[in-house]
Simulated assay, not measured.
Amino acid sequence: MKKSPLSQQTRTDAGLASVLSVTVGRLARRLRAQRLDASLSLGQNAALFTLARHGEMTPGELAEHEKVQPPSMTRIVAALEERGLVRRTKHPEDQRRQLVDLTEEGREMVRADRRRRQAWMAQRLKELTPQEKDTLRRAAEIMDRLTQA
């Protein structure tokens, strides 16, 4: 049986890294295309999903989590607040600081966006064999570990 060009490319760590970078990037673009509101920037979208997953936090904590500079996060939060997707409140222990959290509209946007992306992905997964799905389950765990490193 002849090996596919892809399996030949992934024999080395460098080749695997290259193929994964391209493939994961392509999948990320396809998932981004499923966004409900394309007028939100990627940074704004990421901030919404982070708040949905981790709950309220200071703008500085949000910036650290998203690996952006605090002034950039300040602009992101201001834009999201202007659209009614987040709200700022005073920190209960330090009135000079603020907390950022999703509004109900922001929560619903995240839920709807997540449902749409999951539906798209579920449709793609229906095209796979049970063995391919098992392989993806194992790969998802490994890729999640890579993102935590």
Results as ranks from 00 to 15, higher is better:
14 A>T: 11
77 V>L: 06
60 G>Y: 04
101 D>R: 03
74 T>D: 15
63 A>L: 05
9 Q>Y: 00
16 L>D: 04
37 D>L: 13
72 S>H: 14
68 V>F: 07
13 D>W: 12
136 L>G: 08
112 A>T: 10
27 L>Y: 07
96 R>W: 04
32 R>Q: 14
71 P>H: 12
137 R>H: 06
144 D>E: 15
41 S>I: 06
75 R>V: 12
59 P>W: 01
108 E>N: 12
45 N>G: 11
55 G>W: 01
120 W>M: 05
131 Q>M: 11
89 T>V: 13
104 E>N: 00
14 A>R: 09
74 T>M: 11
26 R>Y: 09
15 G>C: 03
24 V>P: 11
137 R>I: 09
114 R>F: 09
78 A>G: 13
109 M>K: 12
136 L>Q: 08
138 R>K: 14
35 R>S: 02
86 V>R: 00
29 R>V: 07
104 E>R: 01
81 E>D: 14
111 R>A: 12
21 S>D: 15
84 G>N: 01
64 E>K: 11
145 R>D: 15
96 R>I: 02
128 L>Y: 13
84 G>H: 02
19 V>M: 06
26 R>A: 14
40 L>N: 04
95 Q>K: 07
93 E>R: 13
96 R>P: 05
148 Q>V: 10
32 R>T: 05
126 K>E: 15
5 P>A: 07
65 H>S: 11
69 Q>R: 14
50 T>M: 07
62 L>S: 03
97 R>T: 05
124 R>C: 11
20 L>V: 10
126 K>Y: 06
134 D>L: 12
29 R>G: 08
98 Q>F: 10
19 V>Q: 10
120 W>H: 14
106 G>K: 00
28 A>H: 10
35 R>N: 01
10 T>G: 03
145 R>F: 12
108 E>A: 12
68 V>D: 06
123 Q>I: 02
129 T>N: 10
8 Q>P: 00
62 L>A: 01
101 D>M: 02
105 E>M: 03
133 K>G: 12
105 E>V: 01
43 G>Y: 11
19 V>D: 03
87 R>P: 04
8 Q>T: 01
4 S>Q: 03
53 R>L: 06
119 A>V: 02
12 T>F: 04
112 A>R: 15
119 A>G: 04
56 E>T: 03
74 T>L: 14
100 V>I: 00
128 L>D: 12
31 L>T: 04
97 R>W: 05
74 T>Y: 10
77 V>W: 05
10 T>F: 01
13 D>Q: 09
19 V>W: 06
10 T>L: 03
108 E>D: 14
19 V>Y: 07
106 G>W: 00
14 A>D: 13
125 L>P: 06
137 R>A: 08
96 R>M: 05
96 R>G: 07
113 D>E: 14
13 D>I: 08
23 T>N: 11
10 T>Q: 02
143 M>P: 05
138 R>F: 09
125 L>C: 09
39 S>H: 08
8 Q>N: 02
106 G>T: 00
88 R>C: 01
2 K>V: 13
113 D>N: 13
90 K>G: 08
